[in-house]
Structures are given as structure tokens and as C-alpha cells.
Nucleic acid binder design. Structure first.
Lengths: 200, 200
DNA sequence: GCCTCCTTGGCATCGAGTGCCAAGTTAGCA
DNA sequence: TGCTAACTTGGCACTCGATGCCAAGGAGGC
């Protein structure tokens, strides 16, 4: 583990952060993300507006936390996968390390927020772009790029997986499931659809 | 053609719009998108701040215009393609109708702006989501969805094509090409990479 | 107990975006 | 031509997210 300290300051910081997130998510689920102002959040959490923006750089960060910076974590997980594993499975497994970082209920709540708020959708996609840049080189090392320009193949593959994951998540939320295994299955269905149609 | 009128008001409106875009793009290319304020743009274009926001709902709209609303145009082009054409080619051709709406030089300038500005990237991706929702049903009609939930297959396929197009565009801008045929080739390479790896 | 480091919150400010309103311009009609 | 209805314009005030600056206060080492 990196940089996780147990000094009083750090523990306090994490506790405050959690309290703010709890208060904010409650408000977001009640009134919607855009309809909730930062002032309401800080009032509910008992923190000053100025301090809030030191804990969370943006309002969207309440929802996504440090997820955007977890590219290296996914990369490490990807490197653990055997070299001869199909890239799709390897990426799927690598990405699933993130789903262990939060309760399924909270994940579903966040998912619903994301699909209903343009601002959150945008941040979500930005996050994927960040991951793409981190993961693309390792993907290209695995699959080879032939004479394609560096980056093209890797980014296309990672973006495809993330797109299929997003489409699957939308369908998953839509059908009101709360079973992570079902999400995995839907992702596989989406990837299979892409595979099936690429051969035609 | 729909709704394109030649009343004086409409012609004036289009002319003003073009002038603002020209002035704004010049500023954006000089100083960057985020570093240019709307006040600078309206000063350079000789229009009031208030009127600006009636012409362009957001600052990003200067760059993208009504591209986000062109989903139906792409859809119409997709419907023109023969039913037995592979979905990838059909989508590629349908999307290419948009590249005829602007000069290649301006397209390249905009492309460079988009890759260097997070706000523009986000708007770009939002735009793709809008297109996805419009195109997905027709895609699913063509390829069939088996027993997958409606939307999943179509959105996955459209998102994959757009992702490959984006990756190809990035590589294309990177290599400093200005040949649209080369962009088409790179898109094909990206899609081929996805295809190749889906069979393993 | 003292000094240093870090956090806190208040204040002012910026930039994007919106509602409202008075004034001016265009279009249609007599 | 002149009148009216419809629409546009720009100014003002305001909201909301986000940032720089600064004085005050708590934590930890000595």
C-alpha cells in the first residue's frame, strides 16, 4: 500500500471526507446532483465551503473520489494477469479490482446518479480517458501493434472494453439487478456482440 | 433540407454566428480554450455578452456548433446504407457525412483544440453519447440482438466505432497528416485491431 | 512551554450561465 | 406608407462552481 498513513491528521481527514460524501450522496439521491448546490452539501456536512474545495477539487469528486487516479492500480492488476490470457478477459479482471473498493449498494446509487446527470457522465468519461492512457502501453505490449502508430491499437481496445462495460452497466441498472455477476455477464454479452459483428 | 430559412433574420443570425466562431477560434488557437474567456470572445466579435449566450448555449458550442444534435442526420445516412453491408462499414459511411460539413483545415484545428482541452473533450464525448442513443435502435434492427436487453448491443457497437474513430483521430493529428483518406485508413486499422483481438 | 507545520474558514474575486426588462428592429398587414 | 405584433438586443443583477489570499487555531517535535 502506498501513502496510506495513520497519523491523526490523515485519519481525521479520511473521516471528514467520508462524512461529507455520506451527507452529499443523501442530498444527491433526494434532489439530484445538479439540483444540489455545494452550499447545501457543506451546510449538511458541517464544514466550510472553502475547506470543502480542499477535500474535493470539484463537486464531481464527491461522487468519484480518487477513481480517476486509479489507472496505475488497474495497470498493476493487468500486469498480474498471464500474458496468454485474451486481452478482453485480462482487462475485465483488471478493471474488476475497482469494484471491490465500495459496497454494491453505493455502486448502484452512484451508477444511477451518473446516468441521470450530464456533469457526472462527463466526469465519468474523462476518467475513462485517463485510464486509457495509462493502460494502452501495456495492452499494446501484450497484443502487439504491427505497423500501426503507437497508441492507436491500445487505446482502441481499452476504449472498446470500457464502452462495453458502460453499455452493460446501463442495461444492468435498467433491469434493476444488484448482482455483480449479472453485470459481468452483460459485459460479456456486449463484447460478444462486438466480436460477432466484427467477423462479418 | 429542414428549417433552413432565408428570411433576413435567419441570414443575419448565421452571419453573426460565423463571425463569432471565426473570432473565437482565432483566440482559442492563440491562447487555448480554457485560457480564453467569453468576455474576450464577445469583445473580439463585437457582440454583447448576453447575446452571445443566446447564439451559443455554452462556450463549448462555439467549437461544436450543432454537431451534438446531428444524430438524426447520421441516422438518415445510416438508413441509406444497404442492409447487408457490414455494420462497421455502414456506420463509418454514415458518420462520414459530417466530415463534409466543414473544411479539413478547420476540422484539424478543432481536433487539436479538443485533444488539448478537458472541457472540450468532455463535450465531445457527451456528443457521442447523444449519437449513440439515436443510432442504437437502427443498429440493433440491422444486426439483431438475440436475447440481449434492448440497447446493449446497439450502444456497444456504436460506442466501439466512435472509440476507434477517436483513437484514429488522435493518431492522425499526432502524425500531422491532413489527408482524410489517411484518417479513414487509421480508423480501419483500429477497428481491425479490435476485430483481430476479439477472435482470440 | 515554545516554535513550526498544517489546517481551517472567511473574504474577495473570477468565469460561466440565466432571468428579467427596456429599447430597438423586422415582418406582416391595412 | 404607417401601425402593430413578433422578435432581437444588450444591460443589469444574480446564481453557482472554483480559486487566491490571509489571519487564526490546533498538532507535534524539541
Amino acid at each position: 500500500m502506498e501513502g496510506v498513513s495513520d497519523r491523526l491528521w490523515d485519519r481525521t481527514r479520511r473521516r471528514v471526507q467520508e462524512e461529507v460524501v455520506d451527507a452529499a450522496l443523501t442530498l444527491f439521491l433526494e434532489q439530484g446532483f445538479e439540483e444540489t448546490t455545494v452550499d447545501q452539501v457543506v451546510a449538511a456536512a458541517g464544514i466550510s465551503r472553502r475547506s470543502f474545495f480542499r477535500y474535493f477539487g470539484t463537486k464531481e469528486d464527491i461522487v468519484f473520489g480518487d477513481l480517476a487516479e486509479q489507472g496505475p492500480v488497474i495497470l498493476a492488476a493487468l500486469r498480474e494477469r498471464p500474458d496468454d490470457e485474451p486481452i478482453w478477459d485480462a482487462l475485465g479482471h483488471a478493471l474488476s479490482v475497482l469494484s471491490t473498493r465500495m459496497s454494491p449498494e453505493r455502486g448502484i446509487a452512484i451508477g444511477r446518479l451518473v446516468v441521470t446527470s450530464p456533469a457526472l457522465r462527463a466526469a465519468h468519461l474523462e476518467k475513462h480517458l485517463r485510464w486509457q492512457q495509462v493502460l494502452a502501453p501495456e495492452v499494446e505490449r501484450r497484443v502487439g501493434i504491427g505497423d500501426a502508430p503507437p497508441g492507436l491499437v491500445g487505446e482502441a481496445i481499452v476504449a472498446t472494453v470500457l464502452a462495453c462495460l458502460d453499455a452493460a452497466t446501463a442495461a444492468w441498472l435498467d433491469q434493476g439487478s444488484d448482482d455483480l455477476e449479472e453485470l459481468r455477464r452483460l459485459t460479456y454479452v456486449a463484447l460478444a456482440a462486438v466480436r460477432q459483428r466484427t467477423t462479418s
